[in-house]
């Protein structure tokens, strides 16, 4: 088994085919989208491949150490950041091919007009612990 992160971006990914902001959809289209997402997660739980899924608020803060006895320096939020992470799903699957297949399904979630968004998702393998047998 191998773990993969399916990363969804607000910005930074190429524009999807069906690129209409959600507040321009009909309420029924929004419901259909939400339903698709929760059905997808529920199905992966049943197949034993779901690990975690979370959504993030769009705005955050940059923080760094500023030396002994001083409070950390903070900066942001930056309105013009090139890339923004919207959320993720972690899956635990048998192969890279299966991970690609699932990411493709997630990207087919319906959007405006009930048509798939074709949203780009980033698929990143986890760096695993070293295997016990190495030779």
């Amino acid at each position: 088994m191998a773990k993969y992160l399916l990363l969804k971006h607000y910005r930074g990914a190429p524009a999807p085919a069906n690129d209409v902001p959600m507040d321009q959809w009909t309420p029924e289209e929004i419901s259909a989208h939400m339903q698709y997402m929760s059905d997808f997660a529920a199905r992966l739980e049943k197949t034993g491949e779901f690990v975690d899924g979370q959504a993030l608020a769009p705005e955050g803060t940059w923080v760094r150490y500023d030396g002994e006895g001083r409070p950390p320096v903070t900066d942001g939020p930056f309105a013009e950041t090139k890339d923004l992470i919207a959320g993720w799903m972690v899956i635990d699957v048998d192969s890279y091919e299966r991970a690609v297949e699932l990411a493709g399904e997630l990207s087919a979630a319906p959007g405006a007009g009930g048509k798939p968004i074709h949203e780009w998702l980033e698929l990143r393998p986890f760096l695993a612990a070293p295997p016990t047998i190495t030779e």
Binding site: D23, Q24, W25, T26, P27, I30, M34
Partner: peptide, 13 residues
């Protein structure tokens, strides 16, 4: 978030 997006969508439609 979903609720507010729906309110916006309803008015826009």
């Amino acid at each position: 978030r979903d609720h507010l997006t729906r309110r916006a969508a309803r008015l826009n439609n």
